[in-house]
């Protein structure tokens, strides 16, 4: 894949206020973020730090109180709910912590559903869905119902669903949280492959430090602010010079910083 160095997803000065009156909380306090094509970026941070809120805004599910988001060159500014849905449909693939597969449909039908939403014709959808399942190593379970599948297999179907229709970015919310270590690592490996092999920008929210080895970039968020960034260069994770991870840095980053 040829590396394109302009971000596929870019957010500037994102502020998000939740609630009203005395219960009002500023969940995000001026976040700048970009997602590069061909990279797997991990967004880490403690509970309540604003990870999911940021993911929701980047995925055009929530609108920011202030700031701007651009996906594949399209701004979300001024879009209504249908406009946001259109942007999600065209450019965003989601992978959810709880898989969120439609339980009444088989694996391949779940993928076909995403293709149908993206306007792929019914005649082309079966082949494209089969390709997506093959890409995640699940072509042999195409006709299985989600209720008959393991957590790992369900998450693979969810990734296939996110891949279907070639969205520009894939956003994953705690994709390994419901999986055992082996399946979790397999899913992260798959997401990293998706980023590298298809040139898509992949962002995964995670708590799981074991997933760091798959990341091209790591971003740490605390109390609604980005507090740390690290990038893998020549196979080594390097802390960005402008931001300090401090004691919150994951071991690999701390180690990388020492080397750097």
């Amino acid at each position: 894949m040829t590396q394109d160095f302009s971000p596929i997803l870019e957010a500037k000065g994102i502020v998000k206020t939740l609630g009203a009156g005395a219960a009002q909380v500023q969940a995000l306090k001026g976040v700048n973020f970009d997602l590069m094509p061909g990279e797997l970026t991990l967004l880490m941070g403690p509970s309540g730090s604003g990870k999911t809120t940021l993911l929701s805004i980047l995925g055009c599910i929530l609108t920011p109180t202030d700031g701007s988001v651009q996906i594949a060159g399209r701004s979300t500014e001024g879009l209504n709910a249908e406009g946001m849905a259109d942007l999600r449909r065209r450019h965003v693939g989601f992978v959810f912590q709880a898989y969120n597969l439609v339980p009444t449909l088989t694996a391949i039908e779940n993928v076909m559903l995403a293709l149908d939403l993206r306007g792929v014709s019914l005649s082309d959808a079966p082949d494209l869905a089969a390709e997506a399942l093959e890409a995640v190593g699940l072509s042999h379970r195409a006709d299985a119902s989600p209720s008959k599948m393991s957590g790992g297999a369900k998450q693979r179907v969810a990734i296939a669903r996110a891949l279907a229709g070639s969205p520009s970015v894939i956003l994953a919310d705690e994709p390994t949280a419901a999986l055992d270590a082996q399946n979790g690592m397999a899913v992260m490996e798959l997401l990293a492959e998706v980023a590298k092999d298809t040139g898509r920008g992949v962002l995964a929210v995670t708590h799981d430090h074991r997933t760091l080895e798959y990341a091209d970039r790591i971003i740490r968020i605390e109390d609604g602010r980005i507090v740390g960034r690290a990038r893998r260069r020549d196979g080594e994770m390097t802390e960005a010079p402008s931001v300090s991870w401090g004691t919150a840095a994951p071991a690999e980053v701390r180690h990388a910083s020492v080397i750097a």
Binding site: G59, I61, A81, E82, A85, D86, L87, R88, R89, R90, V92, F94, F96, N100, V102, P103, T104, L113, A114, L117, R118, R161
Partner: peptide, 16 residues
């Protein structure tokens, strides 16, 4: 409802 919410999150229009 959860499935419909998922469809909406995946970009389904209200009409769909």
């Amino acid at each position: 409802l959860n499935e419909f919410a998922t469809l909406r999150a995946l970009g389904a229009s209200a009409g769909y």
